[in-house]
Design a protein around this nucleic acid. Structure first.
Lengths: 229, 229
DNA sequence: ATTCATAATTGATAATTATGAATTATCTCC
DNA sequence: GGAGATAATTCATAATTATCAATTATGAAT
């Protein structure tokens, strides 16, 4: 049944599946996680599930309240205010290093990803745009060639993924995001690390602002983005 | 027997104790962790111990090899080359924000910590200097008032603590470190955030360089800093 | 040196007990 | 009788123990 080459352990598998469930809002923010029911639905015992929850806890995706159980994390306005500046700083540095280290074939690959961004933006396909956008940022981070920088950004991104690219839903934001990406590509072509750093930094800050506006408008429409208690 | 106020769970307690054992080189880098023996020595069962190991794994302090067991992490030159620039970036930002937000009483508190640094430096007490240095940096991070920035720096620091302030052992480094701290304090007094950012950044980079020199000299003396395989 | 059998260790399950928190029910006092 | 405090119940998590399967390490025999 399990025809895998790489040695895998159950709790890792569970971590992966739970992460996806959380990102998909299959498990909703604030929701209580019923260990027993979940273990049963996965067809496993509670032990590896609990091990997985400990991992997700240190990733920030769930909160463990002693003797109370496990709850899916809720992202707050304060989280956003605090994370985005850090992300902007780190991804800015990624862009800087990436431009310095990028070889022609690397830029070619970025161009390919970017062209897909252009395509999906033109088609107004937010989901695919979000996907390619994620791939683009990951590619830049990888080019920077600093594993710890990558890990640090990645850890923050894991938490931010709770948003599922909500900012792109703001009218006009997708187009603005695309323009920013064009500027980043230009910095790669001109081999201008400092420019790339600043643009990437501002790109992240712009995302935070778009989110703030989007959430405000949502609130005015009376639809809170998360389930209130 | 257990007279604790704050609600604590066993695996958290174990995480704490193991962390200390690792920082103290009681458990040495690369060393295999015998679950059974360790559980016995703690007087607990394997389950909470294994949960604790999962947490330490996501902190990077131990490495879990499927079906092989758990090993204490070894910090490499590459790790240092990659982490310090990130730390420099983040702590630089901390300093920037801290100077902007610091109130007179905050600066007074920093001054108190700094004066202890002066004292221990004069006495050549490396251990106490290391301790106060850690407290100083933590205080600056706290002043920045960004919990996620704090957490991000803290996560990296957890791993770096494997070094136990090795860089301070380099002759002259303690004095240089003190001078850098004096400049930071000056930036606080002059309310110059950008200066603080740059000094703190360079302060971290200087630490990396001191480490590199120290390790090179160690190697020449034929004493590898870590146990070879 | 290779193969095979054995031992040791991790990964996982299940049953069970203990503990703490929340809810429900009860009681007292006004 | 009703409000608030108190006690009992309930329920899920926390932790232990025992056990088994799977896999890796080992060591002996050829």
């Amino acid at each position: 049944m399990n025809s895998r080459i790489a040695p895998t352990v159950l709790y890792q598998e569970v971590v992966e599946r739970l992460r996806q469930r959380i990102y998909n809002y299959d498990l909703k923010p604030g929701e209580w996680i019923d260990e027993q029911a979940l273990a049963e639905s996965f067809g496993i015992s509670r032990t590896p599930l609990r091990e997985a929850l400990k991992v997700l806890n240190s990733e920030g995706l769930v909160v463990l309240k002693p003797r109370r159980g496990c709850f899916v994390s809720e992202i707050t306005e304060q989280d956003l205010d605090e994370i985005f500046p850090v992300m902007a700083l780190l991804e800015g540095r990624c862009a800087y290093d990436a431009v310095r280290k990028a070889k022609p074939k690397d830029i070619k690959r970025l161009n390919e990803i970017h062209s897909r961004l252009e395509k999906y933006a033109a088609a107004g396909d937010i989901d695919r745009f979000y996907e390619q956008n994620y791939i683009f940022h990951e590619a830049v981070q990888k080019l920077a060639g600093n594993l710890w920088l990558q890990k640090t950004v990645g850890d923050l991104r894991k938490f931010l993924k709770l948003l599922r690219g909500r900012q792109l839903k703001l009218p006009g934001r997708l187009e603005a995001s695309l323009k920013e990406h064009r500027l980043i590509m230009a910095a790669f072509h001109n081999q201008n690390p400092s420019a790339a750093e600043k643009i990437m930094h501002d790109h992240l800050i712009a995302q935070r602002m778009a989110l703030a506006i989007y959430d405000t408008e949502e609130k005015q429409r009376g639809k809170s983005s998360f389930s209130g208690t």
